[in-house]
């Protein structure tokens, strides 16, 4: 894992500015939530870290290595999407082992590491299955295992729980949260769900209209919002946040 430094990146599409001078540092082993309404530039920021967008200005660095112009396949980032995006032409195990295969790891070792990860995520018995036969929650675990298999410098999660039902979401949130902190994963967690961000992330960056409004611990953001937008967005429909666990 690595420290991720986003330094005043700016991304423009024609006339519209999607990201306008965002700077954010994710420390090694830290999960930072990027929270904001749709169209605020949070996904563009994530894609710039992954390497699918080259910012018009600013830099992205992993530890001390500037990766701004490094293509995605050479960045060593793990990606988890809302849509799972599993490879349907492969079994669950092959999905998880895909990244290792690209790195030239041998068949036996790939298999062992994939099975180990699946076991850890509680879907050890599904290794030989076709991913399309799995439930949404199981598919998302496969997606997570696939991203973790390459031991990424940073794990990028783009609305990973959106689309799952509330009960499953609560369970997965706890399990995945524990797993990520146990593995000491450096992560960027993009979501529009303030409750999810507060429960899963060490710090939260609230974005609006391409700019960072506030960066702080969930408690800071909730108790002393820096701007009116933050106060409105964070407290919008979460009056009974379970603060007891802090």
């Amino acid at each position: 894992m690595a420290r991720v430094t986003i330094d005043s990146i700016r991304k423009r599409y024609g006339e519209t500015t999607a990201v306008d001078g965002v700077s954010l540092t994710v420390d090694d082993g830290e999960i930072v939530g990027v929270l904001g309404p749709s169209g605020c530039g949070k996904t563009t920021t994530l894609r710039a870290v992954a390497g699918f967008e080259t910012p018009n200005a600013g830099t992205v660095a992993f530890d001390d290595r500037d990766v701004t112009n490094v293509p995605p396949e050479n960045r060593n980032v793990g990606l988890v999407f809302q849509e799972y995006a599993l490879f349907d032409n492969m079994t669950v195990r092959e999905n998880v082992a895909f990244g290792l295969k690209m790195r030239g790891v041998g068949t036996a070792e790939r298999r062992d590491r994939a099975d180990e990860l699946l076991e850890m995520l509680g879907i050890g018995g599904m290794a030989a299955r076709d991913p399309t036969t799995l439930s949404g929650g199981q598919q998302q675990r496969v997606g997570l295992a696939r991203a973790l298999a390459i031991e990424p410098s940073v794990l990028l999660l783009d609305e990973p729980m959106t689309g799952l039902d509330a009960k499953l979401k609560a369970r997965l949130r706890d399990e995945v949260g524990e797993l990520l902190s146990a593995l000491d994963v450096t992560g960027l967690y993009v979501t529009h769900d303030q409750e999810e961000a507060m429960l899963m992330c060490d710090r939260i960056a609230v974005m609006n209209d391409g700019r960072l409004e506030q960066v702080g611990t969930p408690r800071e953001v909730y108790e002393s919002p820096a701007t009116e937008f933050v106060s409105e967005f964070v407290s919008l429909d979460a009056p009974e946040l379970p603060f007891v666990q802090w």
Binding site: A50, G51, F52, P71, P72, E73, N74, R75, N76, V77, G78, L79, F81, E83, Y84, A85, F87, D88, F98, G99, M102, R103, G143, R146, A147, I150
Partner: peptide, 19 residues
Amino acid sequence: MPLRRLEESARSLGASWPR
């Protein structure tokens, strides 16, 4: 299918575009 997501997943896992 989530074409773009599939492609981005494979790329981030280390596969070149042709692959």
